[in-house]
Each structure stands twice: as C-alpha cells, then as structure tokens.
Design a protein around this nucleic acid. Structure first.
Lengths: 235, 235
DNA sequence: CTACACACGTGAGAC
DNA sequence: TGTCTCACGTGTGTA
C-alpha cells in the first residue's frame, strides 16, 4: 500500500513536462479576476456595463486552474499549435463565462427586488417580474382604450337614444346638454388622423342636427377638445 | 515514438479499475435527458415549469462523461463512500445545470422578441425589455396620475370659486384637465354682463397660467360654454 | 457533516 | 479553416 493517501490531490505531486508547466504559467498569468476581489458590496454599483464584478465570488480560481486540469496525457511534449489552441480556448471560455455573470449582475441591477441569490432563482424572479409588468401594462393600456371606446359607444347610444348614463362614470370624454331646440356636445379625444371633426359632423348630419358653432382646440401633444353647438330639427 | 497518436483520446484506451468502470455505468444509467430529445421545437411549449427541455441540445453527453473524467488517480480501489459522494455531486450539479437552462428557456418564452440566441444575449435583451417595460409603466401611471390631479383641481376650484357659485341658478360647471405643462379648463356659466371671460382670464393670470387658446360659444339664450387652454409655469 | 452554488478546464458541435 | 457556445465533471467555499 504505497498509495495510501487519498486520490483527490493526485495532481499535486504528479510529475509534469516542463512545457506543460510553462503553459500553466501562461494561463495563470492573466487571471479571471484580480486577487483582492473578495467580500465587496454585492448589490449596487453596476449598471449594465461595469467591468468589475461586485458579487462575492468564490474565487476558487487560483487553485482550480492548477489542480483539476487533466495534465495526465502522458509524455505530451512539443505540439505548440495544439498548446496555443488550448490556451486560446481557455481564455475564450473564461471571457464568455465572466461576461455571462456580468449580465447576471446587470439583471440584478435592473430588477428592483432582486438581491443576492442563485442564478436560477434570479431568473425565476425576473420572469415573474416581467409577467407582472406586462400585466400591468396591458391593464393600463386597456384603461386608455376605454377612454377612446367610450366616445364611440356614446355616439352609438346617441343614435339608439337609450343610455347616456353609461359613460359618465369613468371618464367624461363626451358630454351633451340639450335645451328645447339646441344641443351642446363636448368631446375629448385622441388626435389620430385629423378627420375627427368630419366624422363627428357626419354623425350629426345623420341625426338631423344642424351645426351652428364649433370649436376644436389642441390640448397637449395628442389630445383634442371639441365643442359643438347644433340646432335640433323638429318635424 | 511509441506514443505517436494525439493526446486528446488518451482516456479511451486507458486502463481503469473495474469499480471505476462500474461507477461510470451507474452515472450513465440516468442520463441528463432522454435519448430521443434531439430536434424538438425550441420556441414554445414551455411556461415556467415544464419538465422537459425543448431546446435542441447538443447532447454530447454520452462521450463527454466518459472521456474527460479524471479517472487517472492511479490504483484507486475501494472507497465506496467517496464514490457515492462523487456520484451524488455529479447528479446534483447536473440537476442544477439543467434547471438553469430550463429557467433560460422559460425566460425566452415570457419575453416576446426572444428567440434562439446565446444566454448572454438573451439576458441583455431581457434587461432591455424590462427597462422599456418599466418606462412604459411609469409613463402610463403618470397619465393616470394626471387624470386624478385634474379631478382634485376641479374640486378645489369648485370649493374656492365664489364667483361661479354666486350665480348658481342652474349649474355653474367647471372642469379642468392637466398634463405636465398644460391645463384645459371648461366652464359653463350663465350669460350675465359680458365680462365673464375677462374675470376668468384675470384669475388665470393670478395663477400664473398663460392662455394659449380660448373659445366662447353661446348655448341657448343665456348660457356660455367657455373653453380655455393655458400653459403652466413651473418655477 | 451534508448540501448547495459557483468557476474552472475541456471536448463536441454549429456557423 | 477558426470562432463561438454549450454541457459536462470536478474542486472549493459557504451555509
């Protein structure tokens, strides 16, 4: 039993070729991270493009590069092309890995409730956040759509002359006041194609209303305030 | 030169202990994915908790598990506790890895413009999407805030304006809507002395509002519909 | 002590 | 051809 020690550290006292050792020196000459990057603040200070890694990395690099490398291909000497290939491959993979972790910490910076955790949990929380965010966006956009549709619905209800009380709950986009022979209509709508007044006047003509005064005022960047006064024809 | 072959496949014809070979059989007995998981639909069919992996995996598993394992600790026999530890470690790491990729494809399912790409690009696109979504949400919420502020201002003007409440024979209506730098005011009042507009403009001047458009339309015999758009001064 | 998570090096495939 | 990405097994540190 001359091999009584455990096998985990088999590579420590294993003989290796001089060129292989030199190759490992070359690889180690540019470490993935600097030596003093332990126990930094893991939360902030990173906005999508920082070069440093603020998370508390395990940094088992200085050992892992030496020990687990399968330097055991026996009697591999020479082959410098292969060696350069291997080195570039190692460096490329190292770069890819560290820019992936960089993207992860950028994600943790953009998403508010995402502090230190595993990457899988970070992704899961990010997915939940995205879903909740799109849900909120669709809800708000539907509320905005309600405003637009209320005008059309109220015009239809005017044509049917049934319910005027439906749209006066949420947003008073259309208001109408009638006297015995006149009607005052106020409309707030989004500025769309510049044909809003023509459409409205066409509707009023179908309703046998004779327009006597009108005012179209722009409000904000995309809103119109339209006021129309028309005479009611009585047969 | 009895070692003329390349060193990459050094492990293929390397002798190994019988228990080690058996250990590799045990590891291989539960592969990471089933054998027929090649060329499935990579886009959909995954919503945050699916068990199968729909991406087209490279599946270089059956070779990689055999070849790069450092089976070269020479004459490692027995030590079943160590072997079980190693197997559980391998399985745990495998599970962790595959649930991380699962989270990645779940992310690609939740984010609309995210199809096949590298993981770093996926994360970058996800971050951009999240930022754009947050921006949209804040914009829409500010819109909603504007609506509520308009109602607040309306109630305040109703409470403070004794001018319009003085002649409350029918309904002296005042409505206001504000954006970030503009205000739209609509007033319905009785036609009294022909100085209504001057009074209102004087009030607005005291409020540091710069009128940019106005419309005064007669409605009926004794009613006015006044619409005013003014710029808000921000100090 | 067990379990978990991470970074590492490495071979294989895709473009 | 070379470059890029990926899954794998492994060592190591932390809870």
């Amino acid at each position: 039993m001359e091999q009584s020690y455990s096998w985990e550290n088999w590579a420590l006292d294993k003989e290796m070729g001089e060129d292989e050792e030199e190759f490992l020196r070359d690889i180690l000459s540019k470490p993935a991270f600097s030596s003093e990057s332990e126990s930094q603040a893991p939360v902030v200070s990173c906005s999508a493009k920082s070069k440093r890694a603020p998370m508390t990395y395990i940094l088992s690099f200085d050992n892992s590069t030496i020990t687990p490398a399968p330097s055991s291909p026996p009697t591999l000497e020479a082959q410098p092309g292969k060696r350069a290939k291997r080195a570039s491959h190692i460096m490329a993979e190292r770069k890819r890995r560290q820019q992936l972790t960089q993207s992860f910490i950028a994600l943790s910076a953009t998403i508010p409730g995402l502090n230190k955790k595993d990457k899988s949990s970070m992704l899961g929380k990010a997915i939940d956040y995205v879903k909740q965010l799109q849900e909120r966006v669709t809800e708000l956009e539907q509320r905005k759509k309600r405003g637009k549709e209320s005008m059309i619905i109220l015009k239809k209800s005017e044509a049917n002359s049934e319910d005027c009380c439906r749209a006066n709950k949420m947003l008073p986009d259309v208001e109408a006041r009638v006297t015995e022979n006149e009607v005052l209509i106020e409309i707030h709508c989004e500025k769309e194609d510049g044909l809003e007044l023509i459409k409205i006047l066409d509707h009023l003509e179908n309703l046998h209303l004779c327009v006597t005064a009108s005012s179209v005022l722009p409000f904000g960047n995309s809103t119109l305030s339209i006021t129309i006064i028309a005479q009611v024809h009585i047969h």
